[in-house]
Design a protein around this nucleic acid. Structure first.
Lengths: 137, 137
DNA sequence: ATTAATCCTATCGATTTAATAGGAATTACA
DNA sequence: TGTAATTCCTATTAAATCGATAGGATTAAT
């Protein structure tokens, strides 16, 4: 299940990408427009800023803006920051690999085999989708 | 993240599919072999039985057996029983659809668009995989 | 009868998630 | 210079979910 954090984060990024003006977009504006609890959204945008997707301007007339072109913001990267591993089990994760406690032979594990396929097909979607795709109507 | 319930369930189904004998497979045997807490596994196999994948025999020398050929047990069905919806958000779920509270226009929602793609690519894997594929080495 | 298995319900502890609270730091501008 | 508006940061909380356990009831073989 996609977390609200990720859902809100994607919506916010889309919102910012669509607002082409040079002036930063304020949290309050996004929260109102997208029906997101403002304080929660604040923390999400903070995460996205620290991850390098967003820049911010503080104080009056402050807000957030994209640091890259939408077409250069890949869903693989956004999803890993907001949602964590793309794989459904750590033992098939490319970026967050962990061995299973059980599972003597990873290679013989039926779950492993299946989840590699799921991971790859999901990755293919995320690798071929950028924020530009999301924000185009 | 894949739940332990689903992981254990898939492993157990694979185990039963691989044991070709006519005699039912006991929970204790699976639990020991696959390193799964026995009581937890009991409840999972019960779920799989109620869903029609497994039959059971009670009492001494009892256990579980498959009710269909492994090649007729689709991952779409197993995953929906064990893990629930395949989609990452209810608003793109085929079998468990729910409208979002926020989201005025589903059609214009960027998350919706993305998650439909993820759902479809995941479905493609599950639709093309049966228990026979999992249990083949 | 006794033993061994499934069946069933309830509960518990830990973790995660979603959200809230409260203010500190910074900036615009009157 | 002061006030309002905004981001920044940390801590806390309420609710939900998950993984596992407990304790037997029921059923069947020997």
């Amino acid at each position: 299940m996609l977390s609200k954090k990720t859902k809100y984060g994607l919506k916010a990024l889309t919102y910012i990408a669509r607002s082409k003006d040079e002036i930063p977009v304020q949290v309050g504006e996004i929260a109102k427009s997208e029906q997101i609890p403002q304080k929660f959204l604040e923390s999400i945008l903070l995460t996205l800023r620290k991850a390098g997707f967003l820049g911010s301007k503080k104080g009056k007339h402050g807000g957030y803006y994209l640091r890259k072109e939408p077409s250069e913001i890949l869903m693989t990267e956004v999803m890993r920051v907001l949602e964590g591993p793309i794989a459904m089990v750590p033992c098939v994760s490319l970026n967050f690999y962990e061995k299973c406690d059980d599972c003597v032979d990873e290679h013989a594990c039926s779950v492993h085999k299946l989840m590699i396929q799921v991971r790859d097909s999901t990755l293919q979607v995320f690798r071929n989708t950028t924020l530009a795709d999301l924000s185009s109507k």
